[in-house]
């Protein structure tokens, strides 16, 4: 980095890659190598031979159930987050609301999308837990016993509801610039050609936004699929989702086999990887019109 730049152009071109070395080394040591190590470990016996037994070990009812509930929570929180976030972003961009609504909502989204993890779980416990504010108010004002209706914060529904707290703002942050990118002339051209607002959204605006929406969906999915802290602080180990299972495995080797832990981690990468592959495939199909 401190080499004199006056070196002849030829030498500096052939040595240009040296400038990337620190970053490449760091990324290799602390991102790529650890991930590779896990992935490779998932296909190895403790002695180092190739095996599919670890991955096959995932196919037990309890682990499959954990994957299934994780996927469901992630999918629904991503999908609902996308829908609500989109509606709110649309409200402040194309919804003709007073200008004052926009900036506070974006700032708040910045805060809320980062208000995840342990404190978020506390907030929801204080609100919808057995002695939480909303639970009490529902009981005292409306005579509704929330927990008698089968609701439980420490469940699929509760976790999804909690995850939405960071999913929705993330969606708002990502999709607002995309909505701003919709040019007014497109909507006007559609209108003057006879289209209703609904037709404009269906035939013009949504297809244009589609790649962004898909990408955000994939991102939100991965975002909640890997989340440990919120779920752990909320449910302890009582709700068996994959990241919590893996957490317990790393802490105490509850599965009795470190290589099954590798397989579990590999399964997580596999799921988020598949989600992203689906996204890229759908994006490539829908994006012929982008240069």
């Amino acid at each position: 980095m401190s080499a004199r730049p006056a070196a002849p152009a030829k030498a500096s071109i052939s040595l240009a890659w040296v400038g990337l070395l620190p970053f490449a080394l760091f990324a290799f040591l602390f991102l790529i190598l650890p991930t590779m190590f896990i992935v490779v470990g998932a296909f190895r016996t403790p002695e180092g031979a190739f095996t599919l037994a670890n991955v096959r070990g995932l196919f037990t009812p309890s682990i499959l159930a954990a994957f299934w509930i994780s996927i469901r929570v992630s999918f629904w929180s991503a999908l609902i987050g996308c829908l609500i976030g989109f509606a709110m972003a649309a409200a402040i961009t194309v919804g003709r609301l007073p200008n004052g609504a926009r900036s506070p909502l974006l700032t708040f989204s910045g805060v809320a999308s980062n208000f995840a993890g342990v404190p978020l779980a506390f907030a929801f416990l204080a609100t919808l837990g057995r002695v939480g504010l909303v639970t009490i108010l529902l009981r005292e004002w409306f005579g509704i016993n929330l927990y008698a209706t089968g609701f439980n914060l420490l469940s699929f529904a509760g976790l999804t509801l909690t995850y939405l707290f960071f999913q929705i703002p993330l969606m708002i942050l990502i999709v607002t610039p995309a909505l701003d990118g919709l040019r007014r002339e497109w909507s006007e051209a559609a209108q003057i050609l006879g289209a209703t607002r609904f037709q404009y959204w269906r035939m013009v605006a949504l297809p244009i936004l589609w790649p962004t929406l898909l990408g955000t969906l994939a991102l939100l999915f991965a975002n909640s699929f890997g989340a440990v802290a919120t779920a752990y602080a909320l449910t302890g180990s009582s709700l068996s989702i994959v990241p919590i299972l893996l957490y317990a495995q790393i802490r105490g080797d509850v599965l009795g086999d470190p290589h099954l832990g590798y397989a579990l981690a590999f399964g997580m990468i596999f799921v988020t990887g598949v989600a992203n592959a689906i996204y890229m495939w759908m994006r490539a199909r829908s994006e012929k019109w982008i240069r």
Binding site: A27, P34, F37, M268, I269
Partner: peptide, 30 residues
């Protein structure tokens, strides 16, 4: 100097959004 490498670098920087942190730290520990 290396604009052609931009997509690669960008891809690497976005990886932590796809690989869950718990997997990364598991890798560190091992």
């Amino acid at each position: 100097r290396m604009p052609r490498w931009r997509p690669v670098i960008e891809f690497v920087t976005l990886l932590p959004l796809v690989v869950p942190p718990i997997v990364i730290v598991f890798g560190y520990i091992r």
